[in-house]
Design a protein around this nucleic acid. Structure first.
Length: 112
DNA sequence: CGTGTGACTAGGA
DNA sequence: ATCCTAGCCACAC
């Protein structure tokens, strides 16, 4: 019998990875995509995040582009929500960009 | 079933 | 250093 997944497995995997992001840490789309075996499908990660919008367990606000810029802040129901959430976790943001992003970056394939 | 688009990334000028 | 182009996969129409 075939189970009809309400959502693609790819999306579910993305959610799973994002949920593994520890507190006070952030991740990039490319890192997640690479962890899923699709380093070139970073776009799809963002697209999955769009669906993750419905998943309170998925801290999409911890996922930013490789520049540490809050590219998807506009999709949180408010351009201020994402920044607010990140600052609430101890991140410093300026000009829509995470300060010391490199230091707060967390690699799913290399969770030191 | 074909086309278009997207919360990206890497490489070239 | 900045700016532009191409590639990529999945989903919606």
């Amino acid at each position: 019998m075939k189970n009809k997944a309400t959502e693609s497995d790819f999306f579910l995997r993305v959610y799973d990875v994002v949920r593994q992001i520890p507190d006070r840490r952030v991740c990039s789309y490319g890192a997640i995509a690479a962890h899923l075996g699709m380093p070139r499908s970073a776009r799809m990660v963002g697209w999955a995040m769009n669906a993750a919008h419905s998943k309170p367990d998925v801290p999409a606000h911890r996922v930013v582009n490789r520049n540490g810029m809050l590219t998807g802040k506009h999709h949180f129901g408010g351009p201020r929500v994402m920044q607010q959430l990140l600052e609430n976790e101890g991140h410093q943001i300026e000009n829509d960009q995470i300060l010391n992003f490199k230091n707060s970056f967390w690699d799913p394939s290399n969770p030191v």
